[in-house]
Amino acid sequence: MIQIENLKFQYPRAEFMLRLPRLDIEAGKRVAIVGPSGCGKTTLLNLISGIALPLAGSVTVCGEEVSAMPDASRRNFRIANIGMVFQQFELVEYLDVLSNILLPFSINATLTRSPEVRSRAIEFAEAIGLEGKLTRRPAQLSQGEQQRVAICRALITEPGVVLADEPTGNLDPENKRRILDLIFQLAEKQNQTLIVVTHDMGILSGFDRVVDFQEMRFSNGAEESAGAVRASIGEQA
């Protein structure tokens, strides 16, 4: 489903470089990427979603080499195949809940906003406990509710891959588990591949696999020439 080979990435004018010799993620798996802040977890999600392009190597998602696509194709691929959930929810303040869920259909012409899509959005929202709150603005919702809206927004296009960047980072312990279970449940229902970035080691139960970036090394040029780069991928039982 997701194949990463000989990946090299570096932000402009930055010493930091992400190197990943190989990472394969099977379809329908739930994968957690853990590691300290600044180790490149979010960068990896950006590379998988095609927001960032590698300096070298390839990223293949759903059989398509994302890293080789032109801009517009990558964008269309992203909106059709990848759902994204963010730590800060990133809801649009001036839109109500339903419009936030349907946001992908408002910002990309390749998606058609049909009455069926609207019905699906309402069903989604009601299924995760947002019934009666569809006309509210994000500011009128609790943090847990805001993250539910963000999850609905990520899933409304029925993507093959869901990327969640610290989805529980802003939630209290009780909500953390609930939200994570909800993501698992919805992803499983649609047989979606789920990649969750987190530095919270307490939420790792339930994942099929954990990729620990703590064990990976990122180098500047000096370390690279010294051959200090290595990757370690742990597999959970």
Binding site: S49, I51, A72, R75, F86, E93, N108, A109
Partner: peptide, 16 residues
């Protein structure tokens, strides 16, 4: 800026 960045990450073009 963050709102625009989110839209971009979701699949909105810079032109849009």
């Amino acid at each position: 800026k963050r709102e625009m960045e989110t839209m971009f990450r979701l699949g909105c073009s810079r032109g849009t």
